[in-house]
Write a protein that binds this DNA or RNA. Structure first.
Lengths: 338, 338
DNA sequence: CGAATTCACGGAAACGTTTCCGTAAATATT
DNA sequence: AATATTTACGGAAACGTTTCCGTGAATTCG
């Protein structure tokens, strides 16, 4: 359990510490012969530079933070896979944080991250979108930030990677209308998630422009799944919608369960469409029509944007940019015409 | 963008660096009055200690690495959630690595990790289980290791967290036998994953002891999903099994697709059971009977075991321990009696 | 051939913490 | 009252790396 560091290599080779360091970094100031000797010994002893020392000296950590609500659905798993593809190719490391939808946790994570622990941050915000003061701390410390999916719509001077939520919601709603739905309900999560707001606007606009439906029908989900189940059941019985547009897949799943319980047949009695990255959507009973976000692409894109920020020369000017990726409508039997 | 570090705090308060450091760590050597002043300023300026400096000095990083094959199924997502619960409560950070089933990548990850980047490693091995020399490097450097799920069965002196794969496989096979299956096929991944081997042994033993089936029927999946689809289709047509035991959920999903294509009715014509953590298993058509591993528990347990190793006093003696958690059989319609 | 330049390397400072050691003043002990 | 101990803090070393600066020797140039 001997400490193998540059000092040890230097002593072993009768060289100065600085020489060994330069040799390892392939500096032109070092002769080929010396480099060869250093490389050989480093390889033999399995030498790896101490990241804390490098980080401390160079103010570079080769690490980025990924801060997401959680991983209960396939979306964020895919995003992370996309991020990992990029970080892996750049020799970077991923630090992973879950906010569990808790804004306070998010603030505390960002605070600890704002001190040289990472070279950059990828963030998908926690539910409560009220306060964004903590993000200024990152900018103040010169740590690049890229937001994705759940972005902060009121925050300027930041790079955001999103999908065409509005257009997709319009398409989804029109898909239900075209399938013959006369009364379409929208299942929404918390009101203060920007993604949810934008999707709902798409639903509302499409309804107004392309349907004769008298008024929109919106159900906001509860914190607890069982509670949501009850609410949805009441709504389906009372309002009798013939189309359901779920803003997230969890709500579609709950909807399937409610329909099974109260003997509503999908798609005969009621049609269901949902934003979803569920890999088994096509195997559900019936197969679920989905609006599927390019989750892996989002991860790749966000990571690439972040590395552009990390590597740029002039860090004084703030960068603002909105990258919007397209979602896809994948038809299943849940919205088949009667 | 001023650097806020201990030196700055010290100058601002007319104190020595050492005094400020001790105050921040709530040392008994510092008077209450001084502590209060230091805390106040630190809070006001949002001071956070530089992790590289702390890590370099104290040889503690407050980080652990999680090395897993990938995140294409819900299992590892849940494991990570379990791990995160523990790290979060201990103020630790998670570094995440995907090996993508590539042994070389695993070796290279472990190598970089063996140099003070992390305080401990949680590992679920990549597919190829042949070489385990790289893990010795961790032990040599005194970095604790806990393996989970895909463990190395030939490696001694290490903590392993697994599930009762053998017993579960016996139960799964017996479940099919009890449901009336006379010819049960086992769908297996790569031969050299210990988990797969153990599960297959359970299948073989259960078959021998409780079934009149002449000989076992095993199909090893190809690397490519479509290829596996073709193989399985051929096998179902040629051998006509009436029961399928899938060792991982991906194979069960492929099996569903094949059955749909060649018009085999589940469970009337053929019954299907699978190891799976699919959250939508009960919503599939038909609902899938699963052996479900306590993935979240595995994460929690592995993380707790790791922290025990990290915090123990005497690091000279190697610890060996096998924690085995129980899986659950969750009945669906895919194995209903005819 | 003397001067300027390049080459190849050594010494030392710096990154921000933590902790060992030292020390005046204050308090306690005999 | 003289000594011992505690209190509260300062100075400096150490963690391992990178890089600035310096310097003899070798090479190039006029």
């Amino acid at each position: 359990m001997n400490k193998i560091n540059i000092k040890y290599l230097a002593k072993e080779l009768n060289l100065a510490i600085s020489t060994v360091s330069r040799a390892l970094r392939d500096s032109h100031e070092i002769s080929a012969a010396t480099k060869a000797k250093v490389f050989a010994l480093a390889k033999e002893l399995n030498y790896e530079p101490n990241p804390n020392a490098s980080g401390l000296r160079g103010q570079k950590t080769k690490m980025i933070a990924v801060v997401i609500p959680d991983m209960v659905n396939d979306f964020f798993s895919l995003v992370i896979s996309g991020i990992e593809k990029i970080t892996q190719s750049k020799g970077y490391h991923i630090l992973l944080y879950f906010t569990h939808g808790d804004h306070e946790l998010e603030v505390s994570f960002i605070k600890t991250l704002a001190n040289g622990r990472v070279d950059g941050v990828l963030l998908s915000m926690s539910s409560e979108n009220n306060n964004r003061h903590h993000l200024g701390e990152l900018e103040k410390k010169g740590i690049p930030l890229v937001m994705f999916d759940r972005v902060c719509d009121t925050l300027q001077h930041v790079v955001k990677v999103t999908t065409d939520n509005y257009e997709s919601a319009v398409i989804a709603t029109r898909h239900l209308i075209d399938a013959g739905c006369k009364k379409i309900a929208y299942l929404q999560v918390h009101k203060n998630i920007s993604v949810g707001k934008i999707r709902m606007k798409g639903y509302l606009d499409a309804l107004q422009q392309h349907s004769s439906q008298a008024s929109p029908l919106v159900l906001e989900s509860a914190n607890d799944n069982e509670e949501t189940f009850q609410f949805l059941q009441q709504m389906l019985i009372k309002e009798k919608p013939d189309g359901i547009f779920a803003s997230i897949e969890k709500l579609a799943v709950i909807c399937y369960r409610v329909c099974e319980k109260i003997r509503l047949k999908i798609p005969e009695d009621i049609k269901v469409i949902s934003f979803s990255n569920l890999q088994t959507a096509s195997l559900l009973n019936p197969s679920l029509t989905t609006i599927t976000q390019p989750a892996f692409d989002i991860g790749e894109t966000a990571a690439n944007e972040l590395f552009q920020l990390i590597n740029r020369k002039d860090k004084s000017v703030a960068v603002e940019r909105n990258v919007v990726l397209k979602s896809r409508l994948i038809k299943g039997r849940s919205t088949a015409r009667n």
